[in-house]
């Protein structure tokens, strides 16, 4: 197996994740897309770890999984708050920063 095939798969997932973050209006879906991006990074880390035959990359992947759990918790709490206040989780309606 080549390193590149994993990296390209990760790049593809990353790009799809970016698309999801930018295109979807549903807050929950945006959070899911962020998970996609994080997974792409994890694949990269584990692949490099396999090439170097050390466990450091895997440990970083584990850290990312933990941090992702925290991120989802807080993110979903924010989406719930949004829903409670505005009865909508449409991100295009949140534009208080408009110039």
């Amino acid at each position: 197996m080549l390193l590149n095939q994993f990296l390209l798969l990760a790049a593809a997932l990353f790009a799809i994740g970016v698309y999801g973050v930018l295109a979807r209006r549903n807050g929950v879906l945006v959070l899911m897309s962020i998970e996609l991006i994080l997974n792409a990074v994890n694949i990269n880390l584990v692949a490099f770890s396999a090439v170097r035959e050390t466990v450091d990359g895997e440990i970083f992947a584990l850290f990312i999984i933990a941090v992702a759990a925290a991120e989802v918790g807080v993110g979903l709490a924010m989406v719930l708050l949004l829903y409670r206040n505005r009865r909508s989780i449409d991100l295009t309606e949140i534009d208080l920063l408009r110039g």
């Binding site: 197996m1 080549l2 390193l3 590149n4 994993f6 990296l7 390209l8 790049a11 593809a12 990353f14 790009a15 799809i16 970016v18 698309y19 930018l22 692949a47 396999a50 090439v51 035959e53």
Partner: peptide
């Protein structure tokens, strides 16, 4: 933007690692 991301990262990957093999 997504295609841009794919092209740039994919290009960078292909440019950098060539045929490094994973042989754990």
């Amino acid at each position: 933007v997504g295609v841009l991301v794919l092209v740039v990262t994919g290009g960078a990957v292909l440019d950098s690692f060539g045929d490094t093999a994973v042989n754990r």
